[in-house]
């Protein structure tokens, strides 16, 4: 009787292990997401910025709201975005005071970090890929950025 109970427990444990093994996800480590060049594009009438090469498309309106800029004021301005080796998107534009570090989720980009980069507003920003950093240029100013902020 007792031996039957052990056998039943053993079978239940084996089945549970089998089920767990079948449903586990595969993780690939040390992936480099860095884009060689920044994406530059102007938003359309609905605030949507699209890039043909990467296929990324997102609305810039939440960022404008955060920066306190209206759509009309922003019209004709380039949004600049680049992805670092970790897979974070760095987004900014002329007139912004911050660089937004965004993490991609299911159908969304979520702000991971907001890096204040200018006391005044940026004039003519651009990103360069300088792995492990993202280089931000604005006129004569240059700074290296990571997800943690400005690196000295």
């Amino acid at each position: 009787m007792k031996s039957n109970t052990y056998i039943q427990i053993l079978m239940a444990v084996s089945f549970a292990v089998l089920i767990t093994a079948c449903g586990s996800s595969i993780a690939i480590q040390n992936v480099d997401f860095s884009q060689p060049l920044e994406v530059v594009g102007q938003p359309d009438n609905s605030g949507l910025v699209s890039d043909i090469r990467t296929g990324v498309s997102f609305s810039v309106l939440p960022l404008l709201e955060k920066e306190g800029i209206t759509s009309n004021e922003f019209s004709g301005t380039d949004v600049r975005m680049i992805r670092n080796h970790q897979g974070y998107y760095f987004v900014t534009a002329a007139g912004f005071k911050n660089v937004y570090v965004m993490q991609s989720r299911e159908n969304e980009l979520r702000s991971e970090k907001v890096i204040p980069v200018a006391s005044q507003r940026l004039q003519n920003p651009s990103f360069n890929q300088r792995n492990p950093y993202i280089q931000l240029l604005d006129g004569d100013t240059s700074m290296n950025l990571t997800v943690d902020g400005i690196q000295s």
Partner: peptide, 13 residues
């Protein structure tokens, strides 16, 4: 040298 370093890759391309 400084100016050369501060060129935008995007602009170069």
């Amino acid at each position: 040298q400084l100016f050369a370093q501060q060129q935008s890759d995007y602009q170069i391309v």
